[in-house]
Write a protein that binds this DNA or RNA. Structure first.
Lengths: 213, 213
DNA sequence: GCGGAAGTAAACTCGACTGTACCGTATACT
DNA sequence: AGTATACGGTACAGTCGAGTTTACTTCCGC
């Protein structure tokens, strides 16, 4: 017997994550998960009372991982505008990561049956990201809270399109490698994002960004 | 016996559409579709050899309906810039329509298993829309083909966010009513879209849109 | 080194699903 | 009217999956 207790539980979660992300909820059987985890179905049900429970635990795990990998804008650069740029770049990088993109597909697929799960995914991705971005804008620019909220959402919309739909519909390939803690990928087009930041930075005058520094 | 031949086939497609959109592909049984269509499973298989075939036919039907409802920018106004605004407004209105939003969920859910279906959905929604918009910009403004392509995608990104994710994740309620042929809904915020058009209309100078008329 | 907790392995229940077969019947065409 | 065809209803074959049960084995604290 290789694993016991918490170690086994984590191992099951790892195997279930791979299985669910690969085949979806309905098409993944508990037998398949047990085989993948090299354990018995009995142990699955010892740790997770139902298939739904296990699924929720898997999604919660990826969700937490996304949150941990995302950080806040200020952690990406001491210069406020560049922090915004890199924060957005990080965001699209994480969206491309197959674990995240496939989790989004799963959440969308089960949005009717598990509304809380889907709403939670939306929140940690777009709600928290837009909120953190808006808070950073309020702190470092002359935007009011309302302007910052609008600008943050407009910027995110600009940055993720058309990448997000392309990822969801499988038109654009997913990135299999797991991003490092705070490393930005080389394939993120920061110059494009700098231009987009310029677009939304000041909707009133459409001048250059009015960052304080 | 109420229906025969083509009439029955259409009736089956209607029932299957409701069933699939409501419960998803996996959770909808052929028995349920037969009951909903008030016909027999025998007739289902007489018209559609497999469940997949029926599903593809249903999605193709909604896809065609979307294309027919979307039209081209020039049909929305004689004034070029206002045509862009109303075209974008129409786009988000159709996205909110439950038949379309739920079809998107289905396509995303089956993106791995039926890549051609998902890619087809992406194309008719975002590919064709961006293409038509870019073509209209080229015809009516001073944008080059490349600038128009970029501007069209940026505008679509601005317009659909955060509505599209909210619809997909069930955070925002779907609209049950079927949009008229070319009527714009009253709940589409055209003033917001006018502002967004201003944002992307001229990335070089960020001046007001340089439409010819 | 012993006893209970935790794990493995396999068969098993029960229900649901796809797709097929059969038969009686209604419809369309001539 | 008569016949081929299409439809409805039901039963069935074959498969598969969630969750349970039983019998056996290994780990770990004491």
């Amino acid at each position: 017997m290789a694993r016991r207790g918490e170690a086994l539980r984590e191992h099951i979660l790892d195997a279930a994550k791979l299985a669910f992300l690969e085949d979806g909820f309905e098409r993944t059987s508990m037998d398949a998960i047990a085989a993948r985890a090299e354990t018995s179905k009995r142990s699955l049900y010892a740790h997770f009372p139902t298939k739904d429970t296990l699924f929720l635990a898997v999604v919660e795990r990826i969700r937490a991982l996304f949150g941990a990998r995302m950080r806040t804008p200020a952690e990406y650069s001491a210069q406020p505008s560049e922090a915004v740029v890199r924060y957005c770049g990080r965001f699209v990088q994480l969206l491309r990561w197959s674990s995240v993109a496939r989790m989004l597909r799963l959440g969308i697929a089960e949005a009717d049956r598990l509304p809380d799960l889907a709403a939670g995914l939306y929140d940690v991705l777009f709600g928290v990201t837009a909120g953190d971005l808006a808070a950073h804008l309020v702190m470092t620019s002359e935007f009011s809270a309302e302007e910052a909220e609008v600008a943050a959402n407009e910027l995110i919309g600009l940055v993720v399109h058309p990448t997000l739909p392309r990822l969801l519909f499988g038109v654009e390939p997913l990135s299999e490698e797991m991003p490092e803690e705070t490393r930005l990928a080389s394939d993120v087009d920061l110059d494009r994002i700098r231009r987009l930041v310029g677009l939304v930075a000041d909707p009133a005058t459409r001048a250059a960004p009015r960052f304080r520094r």
